Deep mutational scan, measured.
Amino acid sequence: NITNLCPFDEVFNATRFASVYAWNRKRISNCVADYSVLYNLAPFFTFKCYGVSPTKLNDLCFTNVYADSFVIRGDEVRQIAPGQTGNIADYNYKLPDDFTGCVIAWNSNKLDSKVSGNYNYLYRLFRKSNLKPFERDISTEIYQAGNKPCNGVAGFNCYFPLRSYSFRPTYGVGHQPYRVVVLSFELLHAPATVCGPKKST
């Protein structure tokens, strides 16, 4: 009989979030998941669920729940959905087409922007091929755009693959930082360890 609440607040209220290319994953298990708490945590810009209804979450049980978190800019949030393409979905964080879970995003301009520009958040701009779903690539190998090998040196047709967002508070919403948490629900042929409040007794 599990009584402890799932530590969603640790994920959502973390002081620092990860850069999207090096997104963070927390496995959540053996706890009571009260998803209604999430609705009250922040004024969400996005709370979209796929393959599951957000209002039914509190009635369900899962084997595992994974919470992935990272920062992107406002106009990239739409890429965090099944079947999307674009720089983020292709080279940084890719959801599977049959994704079961929820994408939660909110504006973090007050936390993640600086007047002089916050350069701490990076994204991958160049990659030889698209990522597979939930693949994480943290390599910093020089990207070869031409025929000549780069031998690890940046220059003509040889690019450092990561680029930094420079978040400034005066930017338009599309270029402001957004914190994203992706909850993916895993149903294996194994005992369910993460249940809503109704199912945990």
Rank of each mutant, 00 (worst) to 15 (best):
N64W: 10
D59S: 13
T15F: 02
F167W: 08
T100G: 00
P43W: 04
G101P: 00
E76M: 05
F62I: 11
H189V: 10
T140M: 10
K148P: 07
V173D: 13
N130T: 14
P43A: 08
L57G: 05
V71C: 05
L125D: 13
A154Q: 14
N120C: 08
E141A: 10
K110T: 12
S36M: 06
N147M: 12
F17R: 02
W23N: 04
L122N: 13
F45T: 15
L38S: 03
P96W: 00
E76V: 00
W106R: 01
T63D: 12
Y171D: 15
N30R: 07
L41Q: 12
L183C: 02
D137I: 01
E141K: 11
W106T: 01
Y39W: 15
A154P: 14
P191I: 03
S108V: 05
F8M: 07
N157S: 11
T46F: 09
R78G: 12
T85D: 07
E76I: 00
P96D: 02
E186Q: 10
N130I: 12
F160D: 11
Y66C: 07
A18S: 12
R136K: 11
Y35E: 06
N1V: 07
K110V: 09
R73C: 05
D68H: 03
F62G: 08
Y66W: 11
Y93S: 01
D90T: 05
C102S: 00
C31F: 07
N87T: 15
R25S: 02
K199L: 13
D97E: 11
G155I: 04
R73S: 10
L111A: 11
T3F: 05
G86N: 03
A105D: 01
V11A: 04
N130G: 08
W106N: 04
R127G: 05
S108F: 02
S53A: 12
T15L: 07
K132I: 07
P133M: 02
I2Q: 13
G83I: 03
Y178P: 01
L183K: 00
T46M: 13
P96Y: 00
Y119N: 15
W23F: 08
Y39L: 14
P197L: 15
K199G: 15
F12K: 01
R127Y: 02
K94A: 05
G101H: 00
L162P: 03
N109Q: 11
F62Q: 07
K26N: 05
A18V: 04
R25Q: 02
D98G: 07
D59F: 07
T100D: 02
L131V: 09
A145N: 12
Y165R: 03
E10Y: 05
G146E: 08
V77D: 01
P161N: 03
V37D: 09
T55R: 12
V65G: 11
K56M: 10
F185M: 11
A154W: 07
P161C: 03
K199S: 15
T46I: 11
Y123W: 06
N118Y: 07
V115L: 14
F17E: 04
V103F: 00
Y50S: 01
S113V: 07
A192E: 12
Y178K: 02
C195H: 08
L38F: 11
N92Y: 03
K48Q: 11
G117A: 09
R25A: 02
